[in-house]
Design a protein around this nucleic acid. Structure first.
Lengths: 223, 223
DNA sequence: GAGGTATGAATGAATG
DNA sequence: CATTCATTCATACCTC
């Protein structure tokens, strides 16, 4: 990453006010972070809920949190950025190019294709790149599925087996899961804390308010 | 959306890059929002902890490959794990090292790094090597992953061609959206999710790390 | 609303 | 290093 765009700075907006500046990068970080929090909260709430169903914790204190028995289950999906999807026209063109057989588009080709497709809708080089990657991989996989005429039980999901034939040196792995949490938001709306934390301690059951839609603040990628 | 002071806007920073802008107001909101999450998480963790002390979760096998049901947040199944994946801690360290700028780690450095990371989880030199390879390569070809700002109509072939690439200049559309982890300066610091929420797999007790810095990381007021 | 599928995207590893 | 492959994750959509 270049040293030129990773830090925030102060600029004077068009309205003349001083404002804080975030780069896309930072914005993305923020977005993710908040989303992670949301997820964590949600899961914790679920967990507690699950536990609560098995035990009675009426005596349970939650610090200063005592609220009305407002019913609400932790909604989720506080964020949802639509991922890119080719328009029919774009798809048509992409498929055509793909069928032309020219294996993997070079970087240069990607650029060309992208600029062509841009005339038919929003698209970035990454989109094009990914599309071809996926297209190739999946058309290949499909064939290999039809190839093996033998056996192949439908679903051999032996989950009790943690095979880690990593074919590689001594790499092992036992810590699971690096948080995927995609999440994305177009806008960020911030309810007041009270709004958010109005959970019910009703019978020890904790419930989080559904996350209010993020739809009012600043647009992360839509301006 | 008109151009008022409380709304975000796009301006050109001193470096010439387009950046997103937040007003103080928005920044404050953001800070509070995240703070609220932090509080919620803490409280939930406390609650869970309290509950856990009263019950035996012997049924919860939480070995290296088993997560407590809650932790499987994201629907990820524990059965996967065939390829190495850095733990959050490892990732953090790796990113730090990467950011230190020392280009290609030598063989010797790889060894050092590996042995350091081993303390935080299984890892091999190959893993480290690959990671740096990929990290380098991708820090260059990072592109706009974020769906272009505008929502596109999947089927409404309104191929209106006024698509203006608001993302960035025509020639260069690279910006980072890969794993966030830089920081270290006084700008936005975001602990990784796992950093925040390190679950003890011991008896199903959940533990939240003390919140790193909502008080230390994101300096709203003293930029 | 839980299942399945399609697909955009992310990333460890491999190949040149 | 530059590209590519393989696998996986996440989400949108679809069906029941």
């Amino acid at each position: 990453m270049e040293n030129e765009s990773s830090k925030e700075e102060m600029v004077t907006g068009s309205n003349g006010l001083f404002v804080k500046v975030m780069t896309d990068e930072q914005m993305e970080l923020l977005r993710r972070q908040i989303s992670v929090y949301a997820t964590i909260c949600e899961k914790l709430a679920e967990m507690h809920k699950a536990i609560s169903t098995h035990h009675d914790f009426s005596g349970m204190k939650l610090g200063a949190f005592h609220c009305d028995p407002l019913m609400a289950y932790a909604g989720h999906k506080i964020t949802s950025r639509q991922r890119w999807s080719p328009t029919p026209l774009q798809l048509q063109i992409l498929e055509r190019i793909f069928d032309e057989g020219n294996g993997t588009p070079t970087k240069q080709k990607i650029k060309e294709i992208t600029s062509e497709l841009t005339q038919h809708g929003q698209i970035s080089e990454t989109n094009v790149y990914n599309w071809f990657q996926n297209r190739r991989a999946r058309s290949k996989r499909k064939q290999s599925v039809s190839a093996p005429p033998n056996n192949m039980e439908p679903e051999a999901e032996t989950e009790t087996e943690f095979v880690k034939d990593n074919t590689k040196p001594e790499d092992n792995e036992f810590y699971d899961n690096s948080v995927p949490m995609d999440s994305t938001t177009n806008d960020v709306y911030f309810p007041s804390p009270e709004e958010l934390i109005s959970w019910s301690t009703n019978g020890g059951v904790l419930e989080l308010q559904p996350f209010p839609s993020w739809g009012g603040g600043f647009n992360v990628d839509d301006l």
